[in-house]
Design a protein around this nucleic acid. Structure first.
Lengths: 189, 189
DNA sequence: GTTAAAACTAGAACGGTTTCAGTTTCGGAA
DNA sequence: TTCCGAAACTGAAACCGTTCTAGTTTTAAC
């Protein structure tokens, strides 16, 4: 399953992502070209795009379903007596950029993303892409078969909230405010 | 004020926008290059970007503050006894892509936008850019001095709703559903 | 009529992305 | 062990949107 080939492939991918992060942190996202990244990782540009077909942004914001998985656990394994919306609030409040006490490594990375419009926009689209999954999870939590319009709307608002709250002076307060209103708007959850 | 120079400038701009729309409708947004558009309008590529610095998408989605103005009237001049949220609901329900009985000219254009991810995404960002304006309008309607987190959240959710509702099978129903929940979530409005 | 600003121009350059044809590397079947 | 085919990788070319540059034309104002 994990032969030499797969190990080498993973190594190439990691070399690319590492080189990209280092260069971005050093000189800023917009001042680094994919050619430089490929050279730093000692690969061809075509190889870079073979590993990250979603483009330059994906070098930093590697998705691979990790988001959907974390959302799923956040809802499915929430403490008893906790509403799905409270679980989601806690989920986001415990992550960057809302949680403050994170290792410097994470923080620098998040600061880069927050400071780079292209990266922040891409991060948002990756979260929004979870809308169907989240709507299904909410339906499950509500004991409904299929998510209807109402749950899709809620899922979208929830996933939009981090982007929105991050732009406010007090991010955590804005996040809490948003979830408070969502709870009022969807009292059944 | 409107001398020959301004008239010619406006003509050039219109020639570019017209050529773009015609070519896009004919062959699809992604199958038309800016070079072709410039040639069809008999201008240089540099001229195209001088008129539409926001890029290729702006050839179709010309902004120029028209959106903010229409939002402002929708809220300020709403019928007495109508809540701001009802006014916004009516505002969006009366526009493409929610209103169905529009001239074929508008419809083809909107179908193009809906069918082209780049255009649809750009349209969304232009609407989202009205967030501060809408938050201020909501504050004004609520008799508050400055919009707080709560109103900024609401403004964002409202502006996000058309994009969201358009992706649902019954657009108008999804729009209504979303506004119903927003009204519950912000009962003061 | 002169002048200066503004519109326009052609062409080069840049950066992200795709494509292509060809090479190397490896896993698995024979 | 050998050999075959798939997969990773490569360099180079091409494409497209966008910006830049240096220079030309047009027009408004004095």
């Amino acid at each position: 399953m994990t032969g030499r080939r797969d190990r080498k492939k993973a190594a190439t991918r990691k070399a690319l992502a590492d080189a990209a992060l280092e260069l971005f942190l050093e000189r800023g996202y917009d001042n680094v070209t994919v050619k430089e990244i490929a050279e730093a990782a000692d690969t061809a540009i075509a190889t870079l795009f073979a590993h990250f077909p979603a483009g330059k942004e994906a070098l930093i914001l590697d998705d691979s379903g990790e988001r959907e998985a974390s959302l799923t656990t956040a809802i499915r394994e929430r403490p008893q007596g906790t509403s799905p919306l409270d679980a989601l609030h806690a989920f986001f409040a415990g992550r960057a950029p809302f949680r403050e006490d994170l290792p410097a490594e994470y923080r620098r990375r998040m600061d880069l993303i927050l400071a780079t419009p292209a990266l922040w926009a891409y991060a948002r689209t990756v979260w929004i892409a979870c809308q169907d999954t989240l709507a299904a999870l909410l339906a499950e939590a509500a004991g409904v078969d299929e998510p209807d319009d109402s749950l899709h709307v809620l899922a979208r608002y929830v996933l939009e909230t981090p982007d929105l709250a991050s732009a406010r002076p007090d991010r955590a307060a804005a996040l809490a405010e948003a979830f408070a209103h969502l709870k009022r708007g969807w009292p059944a959850l």
